[in-house]
């Protein structure tokens, strides 16, 4: 490295190296290459996520019908204020919350139960079962929903044929305001493959010595599950909880396919997201729909933040801490 004494420099002072470009030199070139490789994602994110989000934020303060685009007008916070007195939105929000209360615990419990089953050494052909439970995820959701419409048919659906075989009356799953949420929840169980896999990974990472120690202490199956398994897999339980909660608030496709977007029966499948879709693409209230999208975003963000705040008290953080 070149050195030169300067007028005010001490004997150990060195001249700063010549400035180089941010992307020159070995590290810089590495950075440039890295950016080049991620550029497609960045461009995609900006074009297809960031800019549309920004546009929808702007639109949420307007009255905008794409069929009369030249009549767009700024309405301030009117769209947000309208939500407070929109009976359809209030109903859609209530429907979504009620459904979440059923489907979130049910899908978590079912996915965990399946994961425990396919992790058990007592189960012959575990890998086959793991594959079978994951397979439904490979079927497009619209196709599987159409199949489920048949399975849930009141007259000749497999579910009712099964109920009939054990002497139970037929249930009009998709046309009953009482049964439609359980029906959708059952449909949801069909797609728990991802959650099951994550639970399975969590279960396999629990140190076996903990179970050995618990057995030595006289813990039974339930005690080992309650005091060893659950705390040790609480991070994946937390992760799955967040994911299923977000998915439930964004619930749309199955409800749309089953009712052609009407929210039948009696508005019981008019979920928040379906209502948003109707406002945007059936009623063409793009401004109001954009406001709904942002409110949904904020609500889900808030719920996620609350869960993170509570995580310290029930999620195992490692090093013996919770």
């Amino acid at each position: 490295m070149a050195t030169a004494p300067g007028p005010a420099a001490g004997p150990l002072a060195t001249v700063a190296p010549p400035r180089t470009g941010r992307f020159s030199g070995p590290n810089g070139r590495e950075t440039a290459t890295g950016i080049l490789f991620v550029a497609p994602w960045i461009i995609g994110f900006v074009a297809f996520s960031a800019l549309p989000m920004l546009a929808s934020l702007v639109l949420s303060f307007t009255d905008f019908d794409p069929r009369q685009a030249d009549e767009i007008r700024f309405v301030g916070a009117e769209n947000y204020a309208r939500m407070l007195s929109d009976p359809t939105l209030i109903k859609a929000s209530a429907v979504t919350l009620r459904f979440a209360l059923i489907v979130v615990p049910l899908s978590l419990a079912f996915a965990l139960a399946v994961a425990l089953m396919v992790n058990s050494t007592l189960l012959a052909g575990r890998n086959v079962f793991r594959t079978l439970f994951y397979l439904p995820l490979q079927i497009p959701i619209v196709a599987s929903t159409v199949v489920w419409i048949g399975v849930l048919n009141v007259s000749n659906g497999w579910l009712n044929l099964g109920l009939g075989a054990i002497g139970l009356p037929a249930v009009d799953w998709l046309n009953s305001t009482f049964w439609v949420h359980p029906a959708l929840a059952i449909m949801g169980l069909w797609g728990i493959g991802n959650m099951m896999l994550i639970f399975l990974a969590g279960l396999q990472s629990v140190p076996t010595e903990l179970y050995d120690a618990a057995r030595v202490d006289g813990a039974g199956v339930w005690a080992r599950f309650r005091h060893v398994t659950l705390p040790m897999i609480s991070p994946v339980l937390f992760y799955n909880l967040i994911i299923v909660l977000i998915a439930t608030f964004q619930y749309f496709t199955q409800a749309y396919v089953i009712t052609n977007g009407r929210g039948d029966p009696g508005g019981e499948t008019l979920f928040f997201n379906l209502n948003l879709f109707r406002e945007a693409f059936q009623f063409y209230n793009m401004g109001y729909a954009s406001a709904l999208a942002w409110v949904l975003f904020v609500v889900v963000l808030g719920l996620t933040a609350i869960l993170f705040r509570t995580a310290g008290s029930w999620v195992y953080q490692g090093s013996g801490e919770r």
Partner: peptide, 16 residues
Amino acid sequence: MVLILAACGSPGISPE
């Protein structure tokens, strides 16, 4: 994307 397209429209010109 729809919203971007919409936002990039040309308001201010009447259909007539």
